[in-house]
């Protein structure tokens, strides 16, 4: 392992740790609600001893709430499993949207805590040949630095658009509110330097149009 790859791996480990911590937190919260709903069912049954009749509609609602939360927890675990398998994945061709969507899905809880929502613009068919885990890590570094510079008193919508320019592809991040794109870009460039070099990528910012762009070759260059 040379120095540059070592730094990419270190960033990857950091990313993996942060995401698994966030996901396990999300699962625990889901379990907490399932636990309370199950407990409430027990409470309602116990109240029948005191003469309070059981309301079948109420029981049905609670059972549905449990079912919905189990489904949600299952989705989270599925995401976690896919993420875990992606770490050692080879160079492959994927759409930029798939990469960004899976990164956003994993970071959903952290974003929600910061009052940040995501939208996607067309075109969603642009493809890139890459190592998905490493590109996801780069997108996460972008998100993390955007989160850090966003004032959580306001809600921010981050819209993703994708472009193909000659031999490159671009992930465009458009902000619904003013943020300091120059400072954010500088922080992303600093933190993501090893991955930017690895992916032969470049970061641009446009304060007027409130965008940050991540540009890279559409074919992976080893």
């Amino acid at each position: 392992m040379n120095g540059s790859h070592g730094k990419v791996d270190t960033l990857g480990l950091d990313y993996f740790g942060r995401m698994t911590a966030s996901i396990s937190h999300e699962i625990k919260n889901g379990l907490a609600i399932i636990n309370e709903n199950a407990g409430l069912l027990g409470d309602l049954v116990a109240l029948t001893d005191k003469g309070r009749p059981l309301d079948p509609a109420r029981l049905e609602t609670i059972a549905e709430n449990i079912r919905r939360r189990v489904q949600h927890a299952d989705d989270i675990v599925r995401r976690l499993n896919q993420f875990a398998h992606s770490v050692s994945g080879p160079v492959t061709t994927v759409t930029l949207r798939e990469i960004v969507e899976s990164t956003v899905a994993l970071a959903h809880r952290i974003a929600a805590m910061k009052g940040i929502a995501f939208t996607f613009s067309q075109d969603d068919t642009i493809k890139v040949e890459t190592i998905p885990f490493i590109l996801q890590n780069m997108v996460w570094i972008c998100l993390k630095n955007i989160f850090q510079r966003h004032d959580s008193d306001t809600n921010l919508t981050l819209d993703f658009a994708f472009q193909e320019i000659e031999t490159d592809v671009v992930i465009v991040m458009n902000f619904s509110h003013e943020i300091d794109t120059a400072a954010t870009k500088a922080a992303i460039s600093e933190e993501g330097k090893p991955i930017i070099l690895f992916l032969k990528a470049q970061i641009y910012n446009d304060q007027t149009n409130r965008t940050i762009q991540l540009r890279m070759p559409k074919k992976f260059i080893d």
Binding site: A32, I33, G39, L40, D43
Partner: peptide, 10 residues
């Protein structure tokens, strides 16, 4: 909200 509703009822 769901956690609030259920735990407060309990």
């Amino acid at each position: 909200q769901e956690f609030l509703d259920v735990l407060s009822e309990r």
